[in-house]
């Protein structure tokens, strides 16, 4: 399975939860909280199913609460076991 990059995360969030107007998810936001960026927990849940399809990684709802920033999110996805 390919590794997930910040660009991939941005694409998946925009496709599934919509674009935050006036915000481009780039390196400067790696350690900024998702809430602050404009994505709430539902936006991440909505994107999680697409991540499973694309990367074969499950992101359980209860884990999502701990993945507060893009960096933490990418680290989790890229180190989690591939299940499908």
């Amino acid at each position: 399975m390919p590794k997930m990059s910040l660009t991939d995360l941005r694409r998946i969030l925009v496709e599934n939860a919509g674009e935050v107007e006036g915000t481009q998810l780039d390196e400067s936001l790696l350690d900024v909280g998702f809430e602050e960026i404009g994505y709430d927990s539902l936006a991440l849940m909505e994107s999680a199913a697409a991540i499973t399809d694309e990367y074969g990684v499950e992101v359980p709802d209860e884990t999502l609460a701990d993945l507060r920033t893009p960096r933490q999110f990418l680290e989790f996805v890229n180190s989690a076991p591939v299940v499908s």
Partner: peptide
């Protein structure tokens, strides 16, 4: 509508 509201 803001883009964030379109998918929902």
């Amino acid at each position: 509508i803001p883009k964030r509201l379109l998918p929902q």
